[in-house]
Each structure stands twice: as C-alpha cells, then as structure tokens.
Measured scan of single mutants.
Amino acid sequence: MTEYKLVVVGAGGVGKSALTIQLIQNHFVDEYDPTIEDSYRKQVVIDGETCLLDILDTAGQEEYSAMRDQYMRTGEGFLCVFAINNTKSFEDIHHYREQIKRVKDSEDVPMVLVGNKCDLPSRTVDTKQAQDLARSYGIPFIETSAKTRQGVDDAFYTLVREIRKHKEKMSKDGKKKKKKSKTKCVIM
C-alpha cells in the first residue's frame, strides 16, 4: 500500500485542523484551538488504489514558523489553505509557496490551493482571484467548507493525484537520464 505524506499549511484560523478532522473523523470542530502540530493517518481508496494518507496539520501562528522547514522537508505534497473571508490569509499563500519551493529546492512541488469556509456569506476573496492565482502557479484550486464537508475529500484526493503525477514524471525523467548515460565512448 502506497503511503502519501501530505502537509496542510496556511495562516492561523483558516480551518486547516477543521478540514483535516472532517476528512479523518467526519465531524466539524467549530471551536478554535490553535494547533502546534498534529499528525493523522487514514486509509482510503483513490482511483481504485488503496493508500495510506499521513497528514500533518501544522501551526499557522507566526511564533511556530521555525518548525516549518522541518515538516516541509518531509512532506510530499501540500494543501495551501486560505479562508475566503480573510484576504490576508490569501496573500500569505505566496509566502508559504515560496518557502516550500526553497526548502524542497524545487520549482515543481505537488500543491493544491484550497479556499476554505465557502459556506460563509462574508467572502472577501473572489473565486476568480483564487483561480487566477492557482493557474499562475500551475496547481489545482478547490473551494471547501469544513463545516458542510463540501470539497473536503476532493481537496485531499486531488493532492494525492498531483503527487502521483509528480512521481510518474520524475521516474520518466530518471529513465531518460539513465538511457543517456548508457551511451559509451570508444577510443581507438
């Protein structure tokens, strides 16, 4: 069974824990209790493949930012979460993405942009803004509501699919490099 290491990042209060708990335990946590770091595991079937999701729910508070490099190193894919009623959390996505790329030393890291709290009427981040940002990053965008469960499975499952595509691409690139290195030079 394939294991996928997913990391949920975003500013404090955007609903990272609520999304994760909704996926794992099928219930909505409405009281806000700032996370330092929590880890969850769940076995699911995605596109006919049974897999184990190892999900790291991270601290959004700035005082825990020193811990970010460590979990970013171990993560295979990242859910970059903002709240649709919090423009600052949307603007912060850029910083999370840049930090992930720096730590992973790669421009090509599996990510999904997630606009959470889409059940709320007080939207300050337009869907088109988020779609445009995701398009500019070359990553999928999904709106979710941890409260109603809308888009929750889709967000995590899409990230797994992005990781699969990335692994497939990397193995193809690896095979191309191996083929090239088999060419021999004969000096007579």
Rank of each mutant, 00 (worst) to 15 (best):
D154S: 06
D105W: 03
R123W: 06
V9I: 12
K128W: 05
R135M: 10
Y32I: 01
D33R: 01
G60K: 00
N116R: 00
L113C: 07
L53Q: 07
H27Y: 13
Q43Y: 06
I24K: 01
S17Q: 01
S181W: 13
P110D: 03
Y32V: 01
R102C: 15
R135W: 10
V114K: 02
S136I: 08
Q129W: 09
K101R: 11
Y137S: 14
V152P: 10
V14E: 13
Q150H: 04
G77N: 02
S181G: 15
A18T: 04
K177D: 12
S39L: 15
E168V: 15
C51F: 07
K167Q: 06
V9T: 12
V125F: 08
I21W: 01
K101S: 11
H27F: 12
E76D: 15
D69Q: 15
T50Y: 13
D38A: 00
A59P: 01
T158M: 13
R102A: 14
E49N: 12
E162M: 09
E31W: 12
V160H: 04
H27R: 10
Y40D: 00
E107V: 06
K88G: 07
Q25P: 00
L79Y: 09
T127V: 07
T2W: 11
N86D: 14
V112G: 01
I46L: 11
N116T: 14
Y40P: 00
D69N: 15
I24C: 06
L53S: 14
K184W: 05
E49Q: 12
F82D: 04
T158I: 09
G174T: 15
L52Y: 13
D57I: 00
Y96W: 15
I100A: 09
K175Q: 15
D92A: 11
V44Q: 15
V14L: 12
G15F: 01
F78V: 03
F156W: 05
T2P: 14
D38K: 00
E37K: 02
L113W: 15
T158K: 08
K128L: 06
I187G: 14
H166R: 06
F156H: 12
V186G: 12
L19E: 14
F78A: 01
N86H: 03
V160M: 12
L159Y: 02
G10P: 02
R164N: 03
Q22K: 08
Q25N: 15
M72K: 08
H95K: 10
I46G: 11
Y157W: 05
V125Y: 09
Y64T: 02
L19S: 14
D108N: 10
K101C: 13
L133F: 06
Q43T: 10
L19V: 08
S39G: 14
T35L: 00
P121E: 12
Y71N: 09
M67T: 04
G174D: 09
K128F: 07
K184L: 02
D108L: 06
